[in-house]
Design a protein around this nucleic acid. Sequence first.
DNA 1: TGTGCCGGGGC
DNA 2: GCCCCGGCACA
Length: 390
Amino acid sequence: MEAARPPAPGLGCGCPPPHAASWAPAAVSGPSAQRDEAPRLRPEGAVPIAAPRTGPALPPQGPAVGDGFAGLELALPPEARALDLWVPGSWVGVAPGPQSAHIPVPVQRSPPGRVRLDEVMAATALTSLSTSPLLLGAPAAAFSSEPSLEPWPENLGQLPDSYDGSSNHSGDWDLASYPASPSTPSPPLPLEAAHFLFGEPTPRKRKNSAQVMFQCLWKSCGKVLSSASGMQRHIRVVHLGRQAEPEQSDGEEDFYYTELDIGVDALSDGLSSLTPVSPTASLPPVFPRLDLPEPSALPPTPILSQVVSGQVCHIHSDHAYQGCLDPMHLEPQPPTVRACFTPALPSKLAANPRKPRGDAKKCRKVYGMDHRELWCMACRWKKACQRFLD
DNA sequence: TGTGCCGGGGC
DNA sequence: GCCCCGGCACA
């Protein structure tokens, strides 16, 4: 009778223990898992972090955020970069560091017949890069075919300065100057930091089996382009009703597009996206610029690119960052991870249906098992004693 | 491990 | 409703 009975659920909420699925190291497969989630969670409720300052352009969904600069700045704690690891764009393209590794990749993997497209992409990326002040100063080694983990310590070192929050860095926006690139919707990737956060060995660069495309997230659009710059141009012209040339942009622009991995790893990435990710495991222990009441989980969020004064910066509309923004303009979208994670903590405290055991002796104690006939009916029935009430 | 008793089932 | 018991939490 007693054999092999599954453990009782106990007082829990039915959710797996917090350390189980959502916290299991295996579940949190590190940066790779996170970065691969992003593109697959279609940001239906993409919340822009910054609203266009001048134009009528509004985000395709969700309310606009009033203070774009504040949002942007806040959206860029160093941790943000680590969180961006899951963004495919961070591995692709043009951003220094890990991203740079992608540029030669197409050439390496592409058969002669496909070189053209890849070359176009690479050229586009490089062209976009050429406009980035920071990238102009980036070491050429970053564009070497081999990854990219090494050439960027200095950039990593710049992070704290960029996020000390002491100023908005007017005119020289750190976000823009940071190894983000115009052609990738993701901020730079301090891989070392991410690896440190995740306690994992440095992952290899993005699998070159994936072809990255860019899909417009504006409503009823879904246009897919092969280059971020092209996507930005598309959004600027089609959705924002602006001139095609970014130079003519008079201020900030929001670009809502995401990256799509088209490759053999797409399927596995999609599966990995189902893996819940522990919020705290993803969040860095220190959030200098954020004093959120509760650190949001890190669901993959749509990629948001913003052009500020001609410089394109890519950020995530991550909830963690949104917490720094005006809550009135934000749509908190509790990640599904939290749905189970959050209640797990107080369940032990809140769920205590049983009243505390009284000190009074009960029939069992008073009369003993041998005189069960003397027990009250409740005690006989294994109910709360009615004779020796507490 | 013993105790109190909740929850549920059989009648 | 009465009676019983599995099973859990607590001391």
